[in-house]
Amino acid sequence: MTTSMEPTVRRVDRQEDLPDPAPDSAFVVVDVIISSTTVVRLLEAGADYVRPFADADAAREFKAETDAFLVGEQGGDSVEGFDGSPLPSLVADYPVEGRPVGLLSSNGTRAMDRIGHDRDIYVGTTVNAAAVAEAVADHEETWLVAAGRQGEVVGEDVAGVDRIAGHLDGSPPDADDLAERIRETGTAQWLCEMGFEHEVDALCAFDSTGVVPRLRDGVFVSAGQ
């Protein structure tokens, strides 16, 4: 007689707390503001795939070899040789349909690099939390990874992990409470001060998309593609 085991869900509130080397498990990288949400929007906009980078020079080489569109930031600043900012609301105006896209960010793509591009990595955020939970539900072990910021825990990533974890155990946190938590974070307040309150509003549209980016052969495509 065999007994089925309940899937194991583990979480870290900053990427630096991941085991090294990363275990042979599924991972969900959550960098709500902003790279996780940007990957989702890029695939929604018809990008052929999204390749994550932790190094700007490697991204520029990728562009030279493929004529990819590059979006990225480092420390919140633009990157020389890149084509656009990774703010999710800007993606709709980028000519990415049918094209490869390279993405560089200070935290999210660094977390992916830390885990290893040979691992089974999904991208999670507030807007696709329910769909991500459904996508990973059958894995024996899943790590929910709040990317954090340079070793610090950031509230919006923890909120994103809480939303996904809640869907996995059948009790997602209250949407109004979660939205308030996100709006009170330093990053969200900074975006509002910069005139990007609409970005924060969009992040609080919980579970509004079914797009789940999954790493295949080093690039993100929609799960099931």
Results as ranks from 00 to 15, higher is better:
residue 112 M to L: 14
residue 124 G to C: 09
residue 218 G to Q: 10
residue 109 T to E: 04
residue 209 T to Y: 12
residue 223 A to H: 15
residue 206 F to E: 06
residue 86 P to K: 02
residue 191 L to H: 06
residue 16 E to K: 11
residue 132 V to T: 12
residue 89 S to L: 12
residue 224 G to C: 10
residue 62 F to Q: 00
residue 133 A to V: 08
residue 34 I to W: 05
residue 105 S to W: 04
residue 200 V to H: 04
residue 49 Y to V: 01
residue 106 S to G: 13
residue 165 A to S: 10
residue 186 G to D: 15
residue 188 A to D: 07
residue 18 L to Y: 07
residue 107 N to D: 07
residue 182 I to T: 10
residue 26 A to I: 09
residue 42 L to H: 04
residue 156 E to I: 11
residue 147 A to K: 07
residue 224 G to S: 08
residue 124 G to T: 04
residue 64 A to Q: 14
residue 111 A to V: 09
residue 19 P to D: 09
residue 53 F to K: 12
residue 107 N to A: 12
residue 214 R to T: 13
residue 145 V to W: 03
residue 181 R to F: 01
residue 19 P to G: 11
residue 3 T to S: 14
residue 176 D to I: 06
residue 199 E to D: 15
residue 70 L to W: 07
residue 134 E to Y: 01
residue 45 A to R: 14
residue 52 P to S: 06
residue 175 A to T: 15
residue 103 L to D: 04
residue 185 T to K: 10
residue 70 L to E: 04
residue 156 E to L: 05
residue 59 A to H: 07
residue 192 C to F: 00
residue 143 W to M: 08
residue 135 A to Q: 13
residue 43 L to D: 02
residue 221 V to M: 02
residue 176 D to Y: 06
residue 155 G to V: 08
residue 82 F to G: 08
residue 65 E to F: 01
residue 221 V to R: 11
residue 45 A to D: 08
residue 206 F to I: 11
residue 153 V to I: 15
residue 64 A to Y: 04
residue 33 I to P: 02
residue 85 S to W: 04
residue 164 I to W: 03
residue 158 V to F: 07
residue 216 R to C: 00
residue 211 V to C: 02
residue 194 M to F: 00
residue 24 D to R: 08
residue 61 E to V: 12
residue 26 A to L: 10
residue 6 E to C: 01
residue 64 A to V: 10
residue 73 E to K: 13
residue 156 E to M: 07
residue 224 G to R: 14
residue 74 Q to E: 14
residue 21 P to W: 05
residue 121 I to R: 13
residue 52 P to A: 05
residue 42 L to A: 06
residue 58 A to V: 05
residue 40 V to K: 10
residue 200 V to D: 02
residue 24 D to A: 12
residue 190 W to C: 00
residue 146 A to L: 05
residue 10 R to I: 00
residue 53 F to P: 06
residue 94 Y to W: 00
residue 65 E to G: 02
residue 116 G to W: 04
residue 210 G to D: 15
residue 142 T to L: 12
residue 163 R to Q: 15
residue 177 D to E: 15
residue 182 I to P: 13
residue 61 E to R: 15
residue 145 V to F: 08
residue 209 T to P: 08
residue 56 A to M: 07
residue 119 R to H: 15
residue 58 A to G: 05
residue 222 S to V: 10
residue 157 D to C: 03
residue 131 A to L: 14
residue 165 A to L: 12
residue 68 A to V: 10
residue 118 D to G: 13
residue 115 I to Y: 03
residue 142 T to W: 14
residue 61 E to S: 13
residue 142 T to H: 13
residue 154 V to C: 03
residue 218 G to R: 12
residue 116 G to L: 04
residue 105 S to H: 04
residue 124 G to S: 08
residue 81 G to I: 09
residue 116 G to Q: 06
residue 207 D to R: 12
residue 130 A to Q: 15
residue 178 L to H: 04
residue 89 S to T: 07
residue 204 C to I: 02
residue 182 I to D: 09
residue 203 L to P: 02
residue 4 S to M: 01
residue 131 A to Q: 09
residue 170 G to K: 09
residue 219 V to D: 01
